[in-house]
């Protein structure tokens, strides 16, 4: 059996590194939640402006889109820490503890590798937008490096949380895949 509620929040124990990373991820989670709330308010403001004032709505749509994107990316490390990303742990459950440990190390390492790649190219993309002064093609013309910043920040923090997860498994503070022993 698998699913996302079988595993508990990642353990940090009293390890200072794990605790710092956990704190960073939590703050990222607050930021994500705040951005979602702001998106709700801005959308309602947009409806009000259009419906009641019958005026133009120039900046709201883009703001809301970029807020939700940023909330998603910046929220990644926090959800990782809560083990909120759905997974299918069919193999881990069928493995003996030792093999499960090895599998956890492999999957976390590959995840870290791919996230590092996303971080690298995401930073490059952000840098392009910044150095070339790209804007969106709307009247508002938002400078794109601002929303694109959420790519390196989000993947950077997710990378950090994944590294902490791997470290916690390696030193035995956390169980592989957060699964309790059978």
């Amino acid at each position: 059996m698998a699913g996302h509620s079988t595993a508990a929040v990642a353990h940090a124990g009293s390890n200072p590194f794990l605790r710092v990373v956990a704190a960073i991820s939590t703050v990222a989670g607050w930021c994500a939640a705040a951005m979602i709330v702001v998106a709700v308010v801005v959308t309602c403001q947009m409806i009000f402006v259009r419906l009641v004032l019958n005026a133009s709505t120039v900046w709201q749509t883009e703001t809301v889109i970029y807020l939700v994107i940023a909330a998603t990316l910046v929220g990644l490390p926090y959800v990782q820490r809560l083990r909120g990303h759905v997974n299918v742990d069919l193999f881990p459950l069928s493995l003996a503890p030792r093999a499960r440990f090895v599998l956890a190390c492999i999957t976390l390492s590959i995840s870290i590798l791919v996230m590092a790649m996303m971080l690298f190219y995401g930073t490059e993309f952000w840098y392009l937008a910044w150095s070339k002064g790209w804007t969106s093609d709307t009247v508002w013309g938002v400078r794109l490096w601002i929303p694109y910043l959420s790519i390196p920040v989000g993947f950077g923090l997710l990378l950090l949380q994944l590294a902490a997860d791997l470290y916690a498994v390696l030193i035995g503070i956390d169980k592989p895949f957060g699964l309790e022993d059978k």
Partner: peptide, 26 residues
């Protein structure tokens, strides 16, 4: 082709209709 991955990922989220997902969940 890996270079494009973050850009495509961002682009998939660049859609106003997706806003309704967190909203309906809230």
């Amino acid at each position: 082709s890996l270079e494009l991955m973050p850009e495509i990922l961002f682009g998939k989220l660049d859609n106003f209709a997706l806003l309704s997902i967190p909203m309906f969940i809230i």
